[in-house]
Design a protein around this nucleic acid. Sequence first.
DNA 1: ATCTTAATTGGAATAATTCTTGATAAGGAA
DNA 2: TTCCTTATCAAGAATTATTCCAATTAAGAT
Lengths: 150, 150
Amino acid sequence: MATPANQNQKADETIHGRGLRMTDQRRAVYDVLMGERDHPTAVEVFTRVRAKVPTISLATVYNCLDTLTGCGLVKTVTHEREPARYCPNLEEHAHFFCESCGTVTDLPLRSRKRAEDVWEFPGEFNISHHEVSFSGTCPKCSAKAAKSKR
Amino acid sequence: MATPANQNQKADETIHGRGLRMTDQRRAVYDVLMGERDHPTAVEVFTRVRAKVPTISLATVYNCLDTLTGCGLVKTVTHEREPARYCPNLEEHAHFFCESCGTVTDLPLRSRKRAEDVWEFPGEFNISHHEVSFSGTCPKCSAKAAKSKR
DNA sequence: ATCTTAATTGGAATAATTCTTGATAAGGAA
DNA sequence: TTCCTTATCAAGAATTATTCCAATTAAGAT
């Protein structure tokens, strides 16, 4: 069981609160994201979901991902025009993209820090969103590279 | 004259240093970016460049933008799978995307601040790049919205 | 049980970008 | 200069992620 029951119920309520239905397809997509939290692309979600709902179409996966993000249950993650990835972590965080192995890591905000304080806003900007992405090599790949160099 | 002479010479040297040539097309693309610094898309660069080099093709504009970014003379800016934009500002900075008027604003780094200090890196990550983008409404559009609401 | 509307499906359409191939042009050697 | 080699360019085809569309299916309300 990928998604804890209480999380599932909260998702249900959120969906219903918008006058929408928690269909099998939406639940399955949500479960996939809550299961392996590795920031899959739409196509990856599609192949995983088909294990549970073999008749689902890619268009529906896109639709489900849209509704889930629209409800605020899931976040869309983009990086350099690569296919969009999806993430059920609702806490404020940034992402690290490993150029070597392709993994994506969540980077939590350090306590008492705010992104808005790092850059200078020349005027009265009204911030509704921000997205921060780092890239380079992850700890595993960095270690591997250091060893092979020696 | 869009690009100051000394900037132009530096660009020449950078290009030649890589064994490449500063062709009319590359110069024209670079001039366009240094001229109106409004983060144009490839297609926007294309239409502007055609005023100077009417025979240039879109493929060449893409090629030129690639070589210029490869040489570090220009940066590619992406935001939520919208078409890539191009920016000749080489200082470290973030971008603000106005959801109302579409303009992109450079946000300089506050002195003595570092992006890496805001997020927690669980392990020995090797950072090679980072990209930070905010979105919302710019000062002009915020003011307009406030006035019309009153 | 029926009605109404939301949701799903499969395929076609779109849009940004990349690839391919042949033509052009530029710089260096003879 | 003339030739040779290689980089660059141009035009259009190809690719890829995503969205759109029209027809069917399913769910909840009456």
